[in-house]
Structures are given as structure tokens and as C-alpha cells.
Design a protein around this nucleic acid. Structure first.
Lengths: 117, 117
DNA sequence: TTTATTTGTTCTACAATTTAAAATCAAATC
DNA sequence: GATTTGATTTTAAATTGTAGAACAAATAAA
């Protein structure tokens, strides 16, 4: 948190955008969301979230060139901004700090975290 | 995510409840939220979130005994359920898995995570 | 050259979560 | 009894999250 204002779904979409790199356009992100979470998501949900994330300055976007592939419309490619990365990192670190205070839970040095209660 | 349905604020409140143990009642949670995040929060926000979290089965609550201290009303003490812990852990692990796929970010073995890009 | 199909984005509307603020409550002390 | 302190509850509003339909453009097929 701290200066962060990032919802749960927003955080995941932002992360997915970073992961997908050049491939980060709404349709692809929605697919990736479904494959990673096993949950279905509507394309509209992803689009409106991307738009909000861009308005907040966490992402920027530009239209890609039309490819020679079957389907036609040009893709809007999203890129995570430095501010977006910073926000994402802050959110993660804040939660990690909380976990470290949770009795019965602890970070193990091999990077695997588990419940020990 | 996976089977999780936990908002950003909800997740933090749940974590704080686990951290506070016997001291986990709305007023105290709100104080802790402010001291840990540096952000102010309204007590109503915390209350409605706790109620929702209880409805979802992540928390349970009971009224504590009135203490001999100055201020009067009895506290409602919240306790995290096994299901709540499981959900919290799943949310954390899911995000960790995403971070591990984010090029330029990596978990370091000393438990400190940082941007390496 | 139409028409269908595929791959996408945009727009519109609604539901759920998050947030603030005010009202109420109860016990202890003055 | 009135006031102070520590707390919960209630009410309303803004922000996020979600679904679905409409629209767009390019290629394939008729």
C-alpha cells in the first residue's frame, strides 16, 4: 500500500501485462488470465481494467501494426510504466512485511513459503 | 486466485486480523492499518469489510468480555478461520507464481525481493 | 464480388468492493 | 448525572470488478 491504490484484479492484470511483454494486448491477457487462474474472465472486464490502469499511469499503450494473420483488427499493445512497476513492487513488499508478522507463517530461506501452524 | 475471491483491502484486513490475534477487533485493526501503511482509514471501512469477510467464512467473531478499562463498549473479537488462512495462502502463492514469470524480477534466496531490471 | 469467419477493440450497464462520515452505545470517571 | 473515552452500527457514495453486446478490419470462401 503506502502510496499504492491498486485493486486485486488490477494487480493481476498489471502483472500479466509485464509478463506478456510484446504480447500484452487485451485478448491475449484475457487468455493468459484464464490459463493461469483457471477462472474465466470476460474480455470487457479486462478492457475496462486496462483502460483504468492506463488512466492511473501504471500502463501506457499504442496500436500495433496489423499483422498478416487471419483475424484483422490491430492490437492495442500495453506496456507497464516505471511507476507501474514501482507500485507493483511496493504492494508486494508491503504484503510480504505483513506475512512476516503473522505468527505461524514464515518465509523460508529457500524461497518457498508455507504454513507452519 | 483460483478459488479465491478476496479484494485488496480485504486481504490486508484479513492479514492484520491474523497478526493481531486476541487484539483483533475493529478499532484496533484500524489503528494497526494506519500505523503499518501510513494511510488513514475510516473505522466504517474496516467494519464493513470485517462483516463481509465473516459472511464469506474467512473470519468468525464473538463479543469479548467488557474490560475494566475506561472506555466502555464490549469488543467484537475476530478470528481467522482455517478457510481464511487457506485462501490467504493461495492468494499469496498465486501472486508469487506470477512474479516468478515476470522478466527482470526474481526472488532472491535471502528472502529479499527486488527489481533487477 | 459478396458473404462468412476470425481476431480484436469499444461501449454500455450493472454488481460488488471500498471508503467516508455520522449516529449510536456503554462503561468509567468527574 | 454529565462527560469522556473506546467502541460498534448505520447510511450513503465513489471506485473497482464483471458481463455482454456492438463494432471493426482483415482474410477465406462462395
Amino acid at each position: 500500500m503506502i502510496e499504492t491504490k491498486l485493486g486485486e484484479f488490477e494487480e493481476v492484470i498489471l502483472l500479466l501485462t509485464g509478463i506478456l511483454g510484446e504480447e500484452a494486448y487485451a485478448f491475449r491477457i484475457a487468455e493468459e488470465f484464464e490459463s493461469q487462474t483457471g477462472r474465466s474472465v470476460s474480455i470487457g472486464a479486462v478492457h475496462s481494467t486496462l483502460t483504468r490502469l492506463e488512466e492511473k499511469g501504471f500502463l501506457k499503450s499504442e496500436m500495433g501494426k496489423s499483422t498478416a494473420e487471419r483475424g484483422g483488427r490491430r492490437k492495442r499493445i500495453y506496456t507497464i510504466t516505471a511507476y507501474g512497476k514501482k507500485t507493483l513492487t511496493a504492494a508486494r513488499d508491503f504484503k510480504q512485511a505483513l506475512w512476516n508478522q503473522f505468527p505461524g507463517f514464515a518465509i523460508r530461506m529457500d524461497g518457498i513459503i508455507g504454513f507452519t501452524g
